[in-house]
Simulated scan of single mutants.
Amino acid sequence: MPRKSILNSTRRAITSVFDHLDYKRLESVYCYEGGDEFWRKKREPCRRLGTKVAEVLVRKLSHSGRSLYVGAGVTELPALLAEVIELQRQVAPYNLRRSEVTVLNRACRSLPVKFRAQDASLASGLFDHLWIVSVLNDPERFPHLAPLSYGNADPVTFDPHQFEQQRRVVRSIVDRVMPKLSLPGLVTTSTEEVIWIADWCHRKNIPYRVEREQFPTALVGDPVCFIKIGGLETNNRKPKGTKV
């Protein structure tokens, strides 16, 4: 019977990594200004809420599998560490922000977790778990698409041409990383990004099931959920608003 909680040694490892992060260097990565105050408020909730997600995740994954993390940063640390310590899994975290990757790798240098400052589509092989959270609806990268995802688009300033361009980019990201998921597999994503995963599944005629339970996050604030992809136990349940 699987444990309901992660090991104390895993908790200590997570705490140690958070203690060794260079928050001064992370200020400019996450904030234009006020980075010091931001991390004073967010550091502990990020660790605590991330650990809760990690506890749920390790109960869903098998030992010795592989996980691909797209756009992995500070928020993903508890899940990454829980996977390698609890389940002896291989993890491949990718992040295009080189300055953050440097900070993360320094904090994780004594652990089998190495962040790559590359496009996640360059990852080799197949993975039974794909993590893609707050990537496809990033308001900085997709300023004309994200407002629609969050339901606060301004009809006066909305630019359909820019939206269409950004929608093509988002779909291309999904089209490059989803084929790396072995089936049946598990996707961890935000509730706002479910529609993009569902859209891919429908285009490929692959069954999926979005699990109902959601988990809060600390930095962006988008709740996280899990999607089972492929397998006889899933079904083509299409969430409201999946037409993208």
Rank of each mutant, 00 (worst) to 15 (best):
G65V: 09
L57K: 05
G73C: 04
N95M: 08
L57C: 05
V70S: 06
D128L: 08
R47L: 15
G73E: 03
K60D: 04
L96K: 10
E55S: 07
T102S: 13
P78F: 09
E86S: 09
V84H: 02
A107F: 06
L122F: 11
P147S: 00
Y150C: 07
T75L: 08
G125F: 03
V103K: 00
E140H: 14
L111Q: 06
V56N: 10
V133T: 13
R66D: 09
P139Y: 08
S124L: 13
V135I: 11
L49D: 05
R141T: 13
L87F: 02
N105S: 08
G35A: 09
S99F: 02
A79D: 07
C46D: 10
K52I: 10
P78W: 10
E37L: 14
T75P: 01
R109M: 11
S67D: 01
S134E: 10
E83A: 15
A117M: 04
A92H: 14
V74A: 11
I85G: 03
S110I: 08
L126W: 00
N95F: 01
F127S: 04
D36Y: 13
R109S: 15
L68G: 02
R48N: 12
E44C: 06
I85F: 11
S64A: 15
R59A: 07
Q118N: 14
L57N: 02
P78I: 09
S67F: 06
V101K: 00
L104K: 07
S62D: 15
L130W: 00
V53P: 01
Q90P: 07
C46Q: 09
G50L: 05
E83F: 00
G125T: 02
R109N: 12
A92F: 14
P78L: 10
L77N: 01
A54C: 06
S64L: 15
A82Q: 04
T75F: 01
C108I: 02
P93N: 05
L145A: 07
A107K: 07
G71E: 03
L57I: 01
K41A: 15
V103D: 01
T75E: 14
P93F: 00
K52V: 13
R89Q: 09
H144T: 10
A82I: 02
F127R: 05
L148A: 06
F38E: 02
F38C: 08
G35D: 04
A54F: 03
N137C: 10
E44Q: 13
R89H: 03
D119K: 08
L122I: 03
T75K: 12
G65E: 12
V91E: 02
A54G: 02
L80P: 00
L136S: 05
A79L: 11
E83C: 11
E55C: 04
G50Q: 05
S67N: 02
Q118K: 15
L111C: 01
A79T: 14
